[in-house]
């Protein structure tokens, strides 16, 4: 566990988390949320929790992004507010 790498990943996680809330386009929000999940996966595997990182990579970055995109197909793409 190297705290410099942890800090870099954590900064990227924070940037992705704030960006996925602030962005107006729902499709880009879903894609940034996938990037957030993948960075969380990197953070966890760097901390030594390989099993959690595996779950995050397959569920968070893989399947749930597809679910979000399929749900966005059924609504208007741009946020109203």
């Amino acid at each position: 566990m190297i705290w410099q790498i942890d800090l870099i990943f954590l900064a990227f996680v924070l940037i992705c988390a704030i960006a996925s809330i602030m962005v107006k386009d729902l499709l880009s929000s879903a894609i940034i949320f996938g990037a957030y999940s993948f960075l969380m996966c990197l953070l966890w595997s760097e901390m030594g929790a390989v099993d959690v990182a595996f779950t995050e990579a397959s569920v968070g970055a893989g399947v749930s992004t597809v679910f979000f995109i399929v749900a966005i197909l059924k609504m208007t793409r741009r946020s109203k507010d």
Binding site: V50, D51, F54, T55, S58, G62, V66
Partner: peptide, 25 residues
């Protein structure tokens, strides 16, 4: 592979099932 090696290495039923489901998706 992930399902079959679940009890001796990272992975397991849930992760392997998600990967199998993702292949169909």
């Amino acid at each position: 592979y992930v399902i079959a090696h679940g009890h001796s290495s990272p992975g397991g039923g849930f992760q392997g099932g998600v990967i199998l489901g993702a292949s169909f998706i």
